[in-house]
């Protein structure tokens, strides 16, 4: 009986949290953005996007380099090292770019968003905004949400581009794959709609999920040090799992049925 009760209570809590999350997002996005909010959004793009550039570039470089190294040792056995370019490019554009960027974004920017909004709640800044007749959803939540949506696809593209250059560095410059075939086979294999656009769609979906989770967890956190630490952890865990799960679904939809 107790078990059933706890299952029921948990389900109810989850459903009502989902409802609160939807209301929060709706409340934040229903308004027509004002010039002032656009300035706030640009500032947030700097915080969550530009300041994430370093980790994205370094990670992209190393992942590209590792893929070239691994790919080369496999492909060279079949004399197919010319296909190194498309292999690196396709894996990055279709999968690793959006997915790893989203995971890094959740750890770097998502956790910061949760902690920031949670602390604003704990220090009564959100309450005081409300009492000053300024809607915290529009003032605090909306700019951060849009900043996430704008930054993530760009970060994913930068990640892929740097990764391809990293693959070039290892494959062409160090292991001696022909530069012409690296680029030209990549050019003929990579399809704009199927690969690049699908990758961007993926990262838009991930941006929505990660930013939404991060902001909601902060907004809905229990305003104590323990509550905020729990919310920050949950942001990283939930958004990472959501990204990986959704990636499978999206991949199945985009590439599963040929």
């Amino acid at each position: 009986m107790k078990f059933l009760q706890s299952v029921g209570a948990n389900t109810l809590a989850k459903v009502s949290a989902a409802g609160r999350a939807a209301l929060m997002l709706f409340g934040a996005l229903a308004a027509v953005p004002k010039a002032k909010n656009i300035r706030l959004t640009i500032r947030q793009v700097y915080v969550v996007g530009v300041q994430s550039l370093l980790i994205i570039i370094v990670s992209g470089l190393f992942i590209g380099m590792v893929m070239a190294l691994q790919g080369y040792t496999i492909l060279v056995d079949y004399g197919a090292e010319g296909s190194l370019g498309p292999m690196v490019a396709l894996s990055l554009l279709r999968e690793l770019g959006p997915v790893v960027t989203a995971l890094l974004f959740a750890g770097r920017a998502g956790s910061a968003l949760t902690a920031e909004i949670g602390l604003m709640k704990a220090t009564e800044q959100l309450s005081s905004l409300e009492m000053m007749a300024v809607d915290p959803l529009r003032r605090v939540v909306a700019p951060r949400f849009w900043a996430g949506m704008i930054s993530m696809p760009m970060l994913a593209l930068i990640f892929s581009a740097v990764g391809i250059l990293g693959g070039h560095l290892v494959g062409v410059d160090w292991l001696g794959v022909d530069a012409g075939s690296y680029w030209s086979i990549m050019q003929s294999t990579v399809d704009w709609d199927k690969d690049v656009v699908n990758g961007i769609i993926k990262s838009l979906v991930f941006a929505l999920v990660v930013t939404w989770i991060a902001i909601f967890k902060g907004y809905d956190s229990i305003p104590t040090s323990e509550g905020i630490s729990k919310a920050t952890t949950e942001t990283v865990v939930f958004s990472s799992l959501a990204v990986l799960g959704l990636d499978f679904v999206l991949t199945a939809l985009m590439f599963g049925i040929e």
Binding site: T123, E124, Q125, S127, S128, M131, M132, A133
Partner: peptide
């Protein structure tokens, strides 16, 4: 309500200044 709140203000215990 938002209109009415422009006519009232509140001093929070922590001050709640924007940091």
């Amino acid at each position: 309500l938002y209109k009415a709140r422009r006519r009232m203000s509140m001093l929070f215990q922590s001050g709640a200044l924007f940091t």
